[in-house]
Design a protein around this nucleic acid. Structure first.
Lengths: 202, 202
DNA sequence: CGCGGCTTTGATGTTCATCAAGTAAAGTGG
DNA sequence: CCACTTTACTTGATGAACATCAAAGCCGCG
């Protein structure tokens, strides 16, 4: 049933997948790539809520509570998305207890993680937040000490509640302190332990 | 099945219902009263994540993703709680699609609301946060312009990420500006419109 | 009745946002 | 493909918002 109704779509970096306010009629699953989930504030500013990595259900977070998206989603790397009609999912939930349970668990995990991240960020000072986000990319997303940032300095700021200028300033500090190496979007972690300490105690 | 396995428990103000780290074996439903959900940070500080009002599923938020509580819950008013064995719930989810759907919807709604609150708070300045929390008590919890704060100034700070001193200072400002009336824990909103404007634009 | 936690106000310090100004990079239309 | 425009990046200087420190009165509780 799932296989019958699924459609695969490809999005290029920068493409918007869905916009705040639009009706939710499909259930999205990220096969490959990277997405940002964000809200627009006061018409001009953006608040990035999180980064979605492969094998995550996208927008699962409010598919059951809202009939319209309460945030927008865009690709920050070339991405492959599986779309399934929401009605199909609802029917399966009603008839298949194990599937319902899987969704409940997945939803709950995503929620916990998102909230944990938000609480963490709000507790830390700017250095701590910056270290935290570098570690997130290294450990959770790219699983490597060396990677290219998929987002701009401005977007990093929108993700961890900082001004662009301060993101840049603190990245430069880390560079001067030889904690990381920077080449444009390229980041290499030189002193993992120190970075962890800054993230934990900052 | 639900009625058979449910147990009602009463908690007095200040009593802890469950502690961070304890195994989750029961599913809790708040019949009457008011609870705070909180995390302990660095052993001494507390971060209040939210207030639970009647007819909410408590700890639903991580009953499916964690086997142990990731936060603590305590009564801030005399409370009546319904406890159901987690196994019973799991069995019902597996066999009853409509029930599973109800849980998914409820869980999703709670999640959306919690995240929305957190994002809101992190965007606002101290005056905005203070106004926001007064309005939350007035509109969402007590449904009255006049109520007694169920928590201390310190706890308000822990809920909206402020120092106790600043909570007090800003409440005093609101009092001087004749926006609210204060008598110890008692709050009366005098100028709802102005308070709303402060919450929205602060 | 005295002790610890809550409340309050004032003074001081730090962190971070804002402003400004310039360079580099990346699109865009002719 | 090159001028042109916009967007991203970077650094320094300044000021506002908020945390921290200090001190004293209050309240509830054992």
């Amino acid at each position: 049933m799932l296989n019958l109704s699924k459609k695969e779509v490809r999005y290029e970096k920068g493409e918007v997948i869905c916009r705040e306010g639009e009706p939710i009629d499909r259930f999205l699953y990220l096969k490959e790539g990277l997405l940002k989930v964000y809200k627009t504030i006061d018409g001009n500013k953006e608040q990035i809520i999180g980064i979605t990595s492969p094998r995550d259900f996208i927008g699962l977070l409010s598919a059951f509570s809202q009939s319209n998206y309460i945030y927008s989603i865009a690709a920050i790397e070339p991405s492959e998305i599986c779309a399934i009609e929401l009605d199909t999912i609802l029917k399966i939930v009603e008839s298949n207890g194990a599937f319902a349970m899987t969704l409940l668990i997945k939803l709950s995990q995503m929620h916990d993680q998102l909230l944990e991240t938000r609480l963490s960020i709000s507790q830390k000072n700017l250095r701590g937040r910056t270290a935290y986000i570098i570690l997130m990319f290294a450990n959770d997303i790219y699983r490597s000490n060396r990677f290219d940032l998929p987002i701009s300095r401005k977007e990093i700021g929108e993700l961890i509640d900082m001004r662009t200028e301060n993101v840049i300033r603190i990245l430069s500090e880390f560079r001067k302190d030889k904690i990381i190496k920077i080449e444009g979007k390229g980041i290499q972690i030189l002193e993992m332990d120190r970075l962890k300490r800054i993230a934990d105690f900052g």
